[in-house]
Each structure stands twice: as structure tokens, then as C-alpha cells.
Design a binder for these strands. Structure first.
Lengths: 156, 156
DNA sequence: GTAAGATGGTCAACGTGGTTGACGAAATAG
DNA sequence: CTATTTCGTCAACCACGTTGACCATCTTAC
């Protein structure tokens, strides 16, 4: 039977709480810097769109959701001014999704704020311990759950 | 500027991925054991209801959501057979929410499966490293984000 | 004892982030 | 030229959350 002092007892909640703490802090600061509308899910989307733009279908694949869900998320981010849709001259079916200047501003600020947050963790825990946590988690997480091909922006 | 090899770079995604790995494994096993309908959010609710039952309003407060949201979640869990509503003889306004036998079964199985998952992490990483991760995370997470007053069941 | 206020549950409308299924238009394979 | 695949979208639906309103009931003050 589980006892509260056994190693690992509170691990799941602590992992979630750690993530939430980082993301909450990030968004509180982003709101202060002129991006109060930016929600956690939007960060992954903006990052996945990338500098060259992409399509709704491709976006869905990258994010692991249906193309319809990706399309609706793009709708919202277009309404907020973070993304824009342009016709693809080479393929009349496709509509390129691109980040706007506002979207790039949000992305850059997010990266900068996250730098500060990371520094805070490193300053408090020490670089060794932060690196050790990362190594341990990497060992426990299957590759398909943790795909770090879109670094720099984390739920911001 | 952030570089991928800097300590803390991938930390947020790894924290989230670690949590998701644990919860995914837990639910895959719970589905195998006859509880395929149980979703991550349900675990917190069942745990918050507790052995003595509670009311929708109180449940909302415990979970940090509105009483209406708590009421709708109770509706779903009642429909699934995990909870039941009974009139409070002492107060005609109140309706006690209680776990059913099915709910208790889900709770117990969830606790048992989580025990195994924790053992797996401890076996792979070592008790020291698991304890170190927990200590570090405890230090970085504000008390109001991490409230471990409902231990034993984690998103199951 | 009654009037006034606080509390519990519910209804309605809405927002966000997902799902499937269907379907037309355009590109591509044969 | 036809058959198939792909892209975007529409429509319905679900889970989970929000506010505001409302009625019934319990509690408090007078």
C-alpha cells in the first residue's frame, strides 16, 4: 500500500504542478507584456506553424489532432491577430497559415520570458539538479510522448 | 538566447511528458481492468468526494471550479455509475454525492496500479533520484498549486 | 414569528478544444 | 480522361469550463 513518505508517492502531482507553475508564470508575464489573450495551447500552435508557415492539415499532424481541430484553433488565432491565412498560388486547395508580426512578437517575448524562468530554476536548484531531473525524465518518457522538435516555446 | 543543451531547456515539456506518461499508463491499465470510461479528471473528482460523500458546491470548492461545473461533472459520473446522488434528510436543499461500489472499485484499482507504476520508476531511476526529483519540485512549486491533501489517486 | 439574507441546486447561454462524418474542389496517378 | 487522393470546410456532437439568473430552503436578526 502506498504511504505518503515513499519515494514517488507525490511524483505525478509534482510533475503536473511543476509544469503548471512554469506555464502560469510564463503567461502572467506575457499578459503583463501585452499578450493577455495568449493561452497555453496557442504557444504550441504558433511554434508548430514555424517561420515558413504551413497548412491546417499539416498543423494537425504535427500537433497530433485532427485537421478540423487545427483549423478551428487557427480560426481563433487569426481572430486574435496572431496568424493569417493566405492562398497558396501553387495549389488552389491549400491555404498557407503564417504568423503575423504580432505572432512573432508573442513568440519572441515568450522565449525571453522562458529564459528568465529557466534561470530562476537553475539559480534555485543548481544546474546539476536541473540537468539530473531532465535526464531522469528523458529515461522514463517514451519517445512518442516527448517530441522536442519544436523547442523554445513551451505552452506559452 | 536559449540553446538546446542548456540545463532547463526542455524541462517544461519533460515535466508534462512525465506526467502524461504516468497518467496514460495508469489509464491504459485501468481500461484493461474494466474501467475504460474513467478519464483523468474523474480521478480527482472521485477522490475529492471521499468516503463520506459531499455536496456539489463543496466539491466545486475543493476542486477549484464553480458549483455548476462540479454539478455537471457529477452528472457524468452518475451516468457512468461511479457516483450517486441522495437527498440529505437534514437539509432539503442539499443533495449528497456519494461514491458507488463501482466508484470504490475504480479508486482501489487505481491506487494499486499506481503503486506498480511508482515501483517501475523507482526500479529504473533508483529511490534516491526519484526522491530528489520530488524534493526539487516541491521547492519550486507554490503551495497553492500543489495541494496534496487528496493523495493516492492521481488523475486516475 | 416574520422579514431579510445566505446557501444549495439547477437552467440557460456561451467559450474552448477536441471528435467523426460528409462533401466539393483541386491536384495527381493510371 | 478517369479514378483516387488531398485540402479545406460544414455540421453535429462531446467534455469541461465559465457567468448570470432563479427558486427553494435554511439561518439570522429583529
Amino acid at each position: 500500500m502506498a504511504t505518503p513518505d515513499r519515494p514517488g508517492f507525490a511524483l505525478p502531482l509534482l510533475l503536473l504542478a511543476g509544469f503548471r507553475t512554469l506555464v502560469d508564470d510564463l503567461h502572467a508575464e506575457l499578459a503583463r507584456q501585452g499578450h493577455p489573450e495568449l493561452r497555453p495551447a496557442h504557444g504550441f500552435v504558433l511554434q508548430a506553424v514555424g517561420p515558413d508557415g504551413t497548412t491546417a492539415s499539416d498543423l494537425g499532424q504535427r500537433l497530433g489532432v485532427s485537421k478540423q481541430a487545427a483549423g478551428k484553433t487557427v480560426d481563433r488565432l487569426v481572430a486574435l491577430g496572431y496568424l493569417e491565412r493566405v492562398d497558396d498560388p501553387a495549389d488552389a486547395r491549400r491555404k498557407l497559415v503564417r504568423t503575423t508580426a504580432t505572432g512573432r512578437d508573442g513568440l519572441h517575448r515568450s522565449a525571453a520570458v522562458f529564459d528568465e524562468l529557466r534561470d530562476r530554476w537553475v539559480a534555485t536548484l543548481g544546474a546539476d539538479r536541473v540537468a539530473a531531473i531532465e535526464d531522469d525524465l528523458r529515461r522514463m518518457v517514451p519517445a512518442d510522448v516527448f517530441r522536442l522538435d519544436v523547442p523554445g516555446w513551451f505552452g506559452g
